Structure formats: structure tokens, C-alpha cells
Simulated assay, not measured.
Amino acid sequence: MSEKTMRSFAGGLIVAAVILGITYFLEPNDTKNTEAAEPATAEEPEKQDKDKNVELSADEMQTALKAEGFIIHSEDEWKEINKDLQDSGTLKEENEKLKEEVKKAQENNDKKGDGETVYRTMLTVTSGMTSIDVGKALESAKIINKGMDFFNAVEKKGYENDLRPGTFEVDSDMSMDEILKTVFKK
């Protein structure tokens, strides 16, 4: 093939591609027609109900929503969840204020140079936390050196299932046993 023939062939391919692209994008979409022709399956009860204008009972709605992966709560349960969230938000605010006070106290101690710094914090334990989580919180608050030491002490004492939710004041002067007695039920 000569150079001129090759250019003509390439130009023809480009023109064909442009025409096909224009046809593809400007042609009306027929998916609506095919969806209407297909019968709704059992997995799609809401489509069947919309098409038939049938109202579902409360139990049927709950069943359909649970099948879709939603979690259903009564109004009282929802209010309790929101109350818990608001309470935890308030506790977080108080904890932040206390952290600021501790920071100011540390700065004052650093200026005075009075020796060893004592760290104090309000430890908030929520339901669902583990002793590992509490150990990490104590470590980040500089109450203990290693969170795993706390976890190991809990395991040694057998307190794994006795963690009680609440807010506790702990400081770095407390021994590990004193911290365990403060945070656990035993």
C-alpha cells in the first residue's frame, strides 16, 4: 500500500467511528421499555407495590426493610440511642475541657520545675469497649506506659468480663491495682 492509500483508509476509519459515536449518543434509550416488559421478581417487592399501588402493612414494611439490610427501631429505642449519643457528646466536651486544664497545669509545672508531673484524666468507658481499648486510652493520656501492661493485668486478675461503663477519674500516681479497682466491678 502506498502512503496516500494508507491515509485514506485511516481517514475512513475515523469518519466511521465519529458516525457510530454520534448515532450511539443521540439514539433514544430503550431501557425503559425493556424494564416495563420484564416481570418484577420476588427480590423487588417495592417495585411490585409501586406498580400495583398496594399499601403494605407495618409488618410487611418491616420485613421488606430488614430484607434490604435496614435496622428497624421503635420510637422509644430511637430516643434512647439519641440520648446516649448526646450524653457521649457531653462527656467528650467535658473530657476536652479537662485535657486543656491538664495541659495548662503541665505548663505551670514545667515552668516551676517541681519534679515529676502527675497526669490526671477522666476516663470514659462506653459499652462495647474492651480492656485493650481502655489500655490504649490510658496510654494516650499518659496514665500508664504501655496499654498492653493494662490488658495483661486485667487478664491476670480475671476481670475481662467485668468492665463497667462510666466516667472515672484516674491519674498516673495510681497503681495498676487501684486503676483496675476503679474501672472494673470486682
Rank of each mutant, 00 (worst) to 15 (best):
S2E: 08
S2K: 15
K4A: 13
T5S: 14
S8E: 10
S8W: 08
F9S: 07
A10D: 06
A10P: 08
G11K: 06
G12K: 11
L13H: 12
I14R: 10
V15G: 12
L20K: 04
L20V: 03
L20E: 09
G21Q: 01
I22E: 15
I22T: 15
I22Y: 11
T23K: 12
Y24S: 07
L26E: 09
E27T: 03
D30A: 13
T31C: 02
K32I: 03
T34D: 12
T34I: 15
A37L: 14
P39V: 04
A40I: 12
E43I: 14
E43Q: 06
P45Q: 02
P45D: 02
K47A: 12
Q48K: 08
K50E: 14
D51M: 05
K52W: 04
K52Q: 08
K52S: 12
N53A: 05
V54C: 04
V54Q: 09
E55I: 09
E55Q: 12
E55S: 15
A58T: 14
D59S: 11
D59E: 14
D59Q: 11
E60Y: 03
M61W: 08
A67Y: 01
A67E: 04
A67F: 00
F70L: 11
F70H: 15
H73M: 13
H73T: 14
S74Q: 09
S74H: 08
W78N: 05
E80L: 05
E80M: 04
I81K: 03
K83D: 01
D84Y: 04
D84Q: 15
L85H: 11
L85D: 08
D87N: 11
T90C: 00
L91M: 11
E93M: 04
E94S: 09
E94N: 08
L98F: 09
K99E: 14
K99L: 14
K103P: 01
K104F: 06
K104R: 13
A105D: 08
Q106E: 12
E107H: 06
E107R: 05
E107Q: 05
D110F: 04
D110P: 02
K111A: 12
G113A: 07
G113L: 06
G113C: 03
G113S: 06
G115Q: 01
E116L: 12
V118G: 00
Y119N: 01
Y119A: 00
Y119H: 01
R120E: 11
R120V: 07
T121V: 11
T121N: 10
T124F: 11
V125A: 13
T126L: 07
S127W: 05
G128K: 01
S131P: 04
I132A: 11
I132T: 14
D133R: 01
V134A: 13
G135S: 11
G135R: 00
E139W: 02
S140M: 01
S140C: 05
A141H: 02
K142P: 05
I144M: 10
G147R: 00
F150R: 00
F150D: 00
A153S: 06
K156H: 10
K156G: 04
K156T: 13
K156V: 06
K157P: 09
E160V: 12
E160K: 08
N161I: 07
N161G: 10
L163H: 10
L163I: 09
R164A: 10
G166M: 10
G166H: 13
T167E: 12
T167D: 04
F168V: 00
E169L: 15
E169R: 06
S172D: 09
S172F: 08
D173I: 08
M174I: 05
S175N: 07
D177W: 05
E178R: 03
K181R: 09
T182Q: 03
V183S: 05
